[in-house]
Design a protein around this nucleic acid. Structure first.
Lengths: 209, 209, 209, 209
DNA sequence: AATGAATGAGGGTTCATTCAT
DNA sequence: CATGAATGAACCCTCATTCAT
């Protein structure tokens, strides 16, 4: 085996070990909450030894930052894939993005617990905000642009693309919260209807019932 | 001073000390985050001594529960007041409730930080859910009922009250999150417009632009 | 009421309050152990308020010293009474003293728990030793003198009064320990027999079976 | 080094660290008393760090239980060795056991302080009783059986083996207390004589002066 | 790279003591 | 004399971090 190959393998191994630890972190946060999650818990969940997190992440703070980055990247990937897979039509794309947020791979209680765990600390930890800032702005821009296109195409009067984008984004975030807090009362169909009804009432031509 | 007066005073004093500690707790959570808030921080914030929290709340867990209950009661009071103050008209009431959630006394970054701090742990601490459950159901019912009344009054077809209520509640919750995460990008006017636009498009007769 | 009467009454009241607190202390030590007994426990047991012990005893250390002194005085009183009540005969007196240690007023698990609680700390708290020293020496001397008288009266050969006194005192102390540790296995009759058999075997003429 | 050897070494090391901490605990109890012994004291005495006790014993309670078990095991070992080393003769064995309790390795003020520290709390901590129960019953049985054998062999009339066993066990326990409380007044020779004299007077044929 | 024993700072909590009432 | 709220030192315990293996 060449030195390069070796190095490659070591690197790969290192990356997968980091991912393994991040996965364990998310499981722990979902199960025990952020404030009760210890590095020992994470190591145990990963089936590894006590000191392993510091070995791979230097500090707990860093592990948490990377965990947030990981979940944010995960979302971004799905967001872009949803955008790509849907046809070129703006309404189609917008609908796909809204539905994405209700898909089981996103509307997943474990993942939501992690998101809200970070949001719960975001005011006191600006770093968390920084990690998500760019993507958040990107999502807003995409949604806003789509709205603009639809408004232009449909000649909708008195409709502010920014207001609609704000409403849509807020709505899905709020639905996440509902599902996180009371999963039993939550009904994915009703949530979907709520979004659909909203889109229909704002853009009736593009979103027929 | 009579015995009754004494007792009343002692009781009042005890209650106010508890409130003082709860206020300090909220400030700390907002400033340092839930996972970094220690009882020492709370005591210092309140200008009192180390052991004071355990003296009045027995445990940190209990302090946190009471803090959540306090902020939930605070919201409930404002909710009911908004309901009472607005006229008897359902649309009026609904509008008042939506505006309430954007009023500075509610859309306050410190309070939101506290709300989200608790929501961030709600999955792993069912107690938090229990504390809010009843009020949450009450709010949902009120909003849903108002929607039903408006739908009946306006003969709106194809509008599900539950879907609208869900959309509205989710929207304000989502707006809270936006404001918490990026207060600078948040624009209260746009938020207000987003809600108004939605209400107008769903119930045009009741919510003219 | 005259000033003197008042003073007398206050003094008496003060003494009885101290006794009340000492009694509460003994109950607590018996129930919870010395290391878990707090001044709060004592005050609660006495049905009084938190700060009461410091008011009457200045410090916990002082309360414990006085408690030991109290239980020691109590024993001394009973010891002397037993000595007085029994006839003038030395064997009679010796027998009375031995039986005293098995009487329910002495062989009482609560009292024993207190004695042993203090003995358990005696090595590290010389003050406890000092409190009991004089009486202990007095008891030893009395028992030893009685043995000497009996030996002289019975012309017992090869019997050391000091050794017998030591054996007797140790025996009753050891029986106390047995009763404290395993009250169910302890049989007062067997204990009594053990002492009687010993006395008989050493001083057969004075202690017939 | 093989995996087995490693494991063995790790295990051994772990066991010796526990023993080191137990030894430190006994020293602290003897020096400061049970109620003043803190985990910090124990760690300092062992020359290790604060958290070390919880690392190896989980809790203070557990450390104390293990300390008692350790001292009880230590005694049991010496008891059985004394039994084995003495000849097959019952009187010999009984004498060996009595002498054992006066040997410096047992009649050691530090060890006695530990024993009495636990006995001082035994009423409120049934666990302590449970830890010693089996051995205590074993000792009683052994001593009682030896007495029976001697009684049978010597045709001693009117001698209850249980009473003698009780007397003997109590006596040594009582002697321990004397030594603990007033080591200066205690005379090992007198103690030994007291026991010898008793054995002689009860079983004259088997224990000549 | 990985382990896990060890560290020690800092957490929640207890409690002897003080003090205003 | 008595109360009980308040204090703050010190306790037990946890846990992020280090380090020898």
């Amino acid at each position: 085996m060449s030195a390069t190959a070796k190095k490659t393998k070591r690197t790969a191994s290192r990356a997968s070990r980091r991912q393994q630890l991040i996965d364990a972190t998310m499981k722990c946060i979902a199960r025990k909450g952020m404030s009760s999650t210890t590095l020992g818990d994470v190591a145990r969940e990963a089936g590894l030894s006590q000191g392993i997190v510091n070995l791979h992440f230097e500090s707990k703070e860093n592990l948490l930052n990377e965990t947030l980055r990981n979940i944010a990247d995960d979302y971004k990937t799905q967001f872009n894939r949803a955008l790509d897979k849907s046809g070129p039509d703006a309404a189609n794309k917008l609908h796909a993005l809204m539905e994405l947020d209700l898909r089981p791979s996103i509307l997943d209680r474990q993942k939501l617990a992690v998101w809200f765990a970070f949001w719960g600390e975001v005011k006191s930890r600006p770093r968390y905000r920084e990690i998500c800032k760019k993507s958040d702005e990107y999502y807003d821009e995409v949604v806003c642009t789509l709205c603009e296109e639809i408004i232009a195409a449909g000649h909708y009067k008195d409709v502010s693309p920014l207001a609609v984008a704000t409403a849509l984004t807020s709505m899905t975030n709020g639905l996440w919260l509902s599902y996180l807090i009371s999963p039993k009362r939550f009904d994915r169909q009703i949530a979907s209807n709520a979004v659909a009804e909203y889109l229909h009432s704002i853009f009736p031509k593009h979103f027929p019932l």
